[in-house]
Design a protein around this nucleic acid. Structure first.
Lengths: 204, 204
DNA sequence: TTATTGGGCGTACAGTTGTACGCTAATTTA
DNA sequence: TAAATTAGCGTACAACTGTACGCCCAATAA
């Protein structure tokens, strides 16, 4: 890679990082302006266009990166779970950890999921779909769930986890602990309930 | 009420309605400008201040109104359920009906729940809390659930319902039917699972 | 009847936004 | 070495924003 392409990549990263850094509980992606991001990244507003067509394209890049980060973490969680212990507990703990160290990744996913741009919503839905289908296959394989039931169950689990994540973002450490415990209980409810429904089908 | 106060109330309603009308899948409350709302309501921008301190105050009013609408509908749903039949099924059907006839009420609640203003988030949380505690008491009373378990269960149920509502907003009729069926299944999972967990505690 | 109140309006202004355009200077290609 | 490419910059502009200020006039109070 030439000097030129290298520098370009660096500036591009600066833009993405600048945007992520500006996110907070009080600041959503859609409230960021092109000029603000450029300012934070240390380039002229008009130079922004050398890297992205518009703010929308930047945002989609961020969603993709965020999704990637999330999937990588979940893989790590699964590895940890394989060493033994409650899959649910370990997954939740992993999730909380990652949430604490990458809050802004979650912010953009959680907020734009119900956001104002169809492209964003689709992108987030795609990322979440990864989780659902992975989890669904996992439950099919390990718990012998019906494909349909596994799918519905996985949707419920992912919904509960992401929702808890959204609440956790604004919480203090201690409250997060309580939330995590509640979440574990809720996930167990769904798991137990799905099992019961499955039995009902089988013995019918 | 004098002619004056009456006219004032009318204009105020025009503002609230104008704001609700401008909401859509592509337009969130936070993307509305004071001038746009005033324009739609047919008044001068500066007259807006005769009714609300700023857009924030308008938004909070809308959240309150939305919450009220929601609670009224759920009460109706409960009445319908008392006539017999599956409580879950009837509640979900009621929810879907209201969602279809008041989409924008949901939009503001769903979007601002993870929104950028702490006051908004608190207001929405307050509205959702109504549902959770009502549902929690209901489950305690009719299913003899532990207060703690009832609470956690109610949180899960409400989370699943609202989340499904968010997805349903952008769907066609047919897809909504499927979604509703999934939702019913998920709610049953939670209910069955909570029951199982309760038994486990009791026989311990 | 006269005085007061208050909803609505128009004007005005400073601030911010996205982006079109043309230039510079350094890297890359020929 | 000479020519072409391109990241980044500065200037410029029109559109839009929130809101301060003062006027008007109809409803209300005295």
């Amino acid at each position: 890679m030439g000097v030129r392409a290298l520098q370009k990549e660096k500036t591009r990263r600066a833009l993405v990082d600048a945007a992520f850094n500006q996110l907070s509980a009080e600041r959503s992606f859609s409230s960021l302006s092109l000029r603000e991001v450029a300012r934070e990244a240390g380039i002229a507003p008009t130079s922004f266009y050398r890297h992205f067509k518009d703010m929308n394209e930047l945002g989609l890049t961020m969603v993709d990166e965020g999704g990637l980060t999330l999937r990588q973490m979940m893989r790590k969680g699964r590895q940890r779970a394989e060493a033994g212990g409650s899959v649910i507990r370990i997954s939740v703990d992993t999730f909380v950890e990652v949430l604490e160290s990458n809050p802004n990744v979650f912010r953009i996913l959680l907020h734009e999921r119900s956001g104002t741009s169809a492209a964003f919503r689709a992108a987030v839905a795609r990322e979440i779909e990864h989780f659902i289908s992975e989890l669904s296959h996992y439950t099919e394989a390990t718990a012998g769930r019906t494909p349909m039931l596994a799918r519905v169950q996985a949707e419920a689990l992912v919904t509960l986890v992401f929702n808890a994540g959204a609440s956790a973002l604004d919480m203090k450490r201690a409250d997060r602990k309580v939330l995590a415990d509640h979440l574990v209980l809720q996930l167990r409810m769904v798991a137990k309930g799905a099992e019961a429904l499955q039995h009902k089908i089988e013995t019918k």
